[in-house]
Design a protein around this nucleic acid. Structure first.
Lengths: 148, 148
DNA sequence: CAAACTGTAGTCGTTGTGATTACGAATCGA
DNA sequence: TCGATTCGTAATCACAACGACTACAGTTTG
């Protein structure tokens, strides 16, 4: 697939869910978060940066510092997190640069349009769930064979 | 950074569309295909391998050899191509391995289920189009802002 | 046999990803 | 004020994926 090894979205959702579970336990350090997610604390801070810019989380340095939610978990859709971290990248992988022959360019235009359509489909699916849903395990395996 | 890694799907769709456009012009060499797609001929052959196994294309070595469609273009959905080349890989990136804390494991289970749901959504979207649609430029930019 | 293809293994350079180290700035407690 | 804790961020490193490229064996046509 196009979207290969980037785990930022997964880490972000994991952390947000963890913070939602902690509720009012005060700020959580990136060190503690790194233990739950099994990734490096520096990486946690890097991933959380854009989420803080967007107002989803707060961070505070110092002795009793750390991270906490700045928005209720049921107000944070996964689509929002997705767009913040990976919305710019194409879901399908496009090839190219632009080929020489005009036929090839026409095909590439179609592929670009297709990528937009698929990206929207992904976003629409992620719009259905919030961090609160993840915390409550409300995401079920789809039983349908990808048709509908 | 702009484009994601794996371009096999894009190259495959490009080649299939090209072959569909050639209709009955006889086999097309991977060299000619590589010029339209702007990728290496060896890479073209490697990508086309699975499609041949699935009966979508035929290949013939020798002087007037090359590649041609083995299935009508309007019978080949893009979802089928997708599944052949990249259906196994996750759309979202999962992180891991399994964390130590049980809370983290529960979150990861949710994320795995979420990935299935999103993968199905991608497949469903790609099911709507065929190689023939790409050839006819029937794929339009979606106007909706990704909301249902 | 020679030419034109495919099939496939193998190597190589580039790039993305995340771990890790390092250090400065901010905050709290004594 | 001093020291401990934590964030913010840059720099570097190892690893893996991707795709270009080379090379060569096998197959078909003339």
């Amino acid at each position: 697939m196009a979207r290969s090894k980037n785990t930022q979205f997964a880490v972000a959702v994991h952390v947000l869910t963890y913070l939602a579970g902690m509720a009012d336990g005060g700020p959580v350090s990136s060190d503690e978060l790194s233990e739950s997610t099994n990734v490096n604390p520096v990486y946690v801070r890097r991933v959380l940066g854009p989420l803080r810019e967007a107002g989803l989380v707060r961070s505070r340095p110092g002795v009793h510092g750390g991270w906490e939610l700045a928005t209720p978990a049921h107000d944070v859709t996964l689509a929002r997190v997705w767009r913040l971290l990976q919305g710019a990248d194409p879901v399908l992988g496009l090839h190219g640069p632009a080929p020489d022959c005009p036929v090839g360019r026409g095909i590439q235009r179609s592929l670009t349009a297709l990528d937009s359509a698929v990206s929207d489909a992904v976003a629409a699916e992620l719009e259905r769930f919030t961090v609160h849903d993840v915390l409550m395990r409300q995401i079920e395996q789809p039983a349908k064979p990808a048709g509908g």
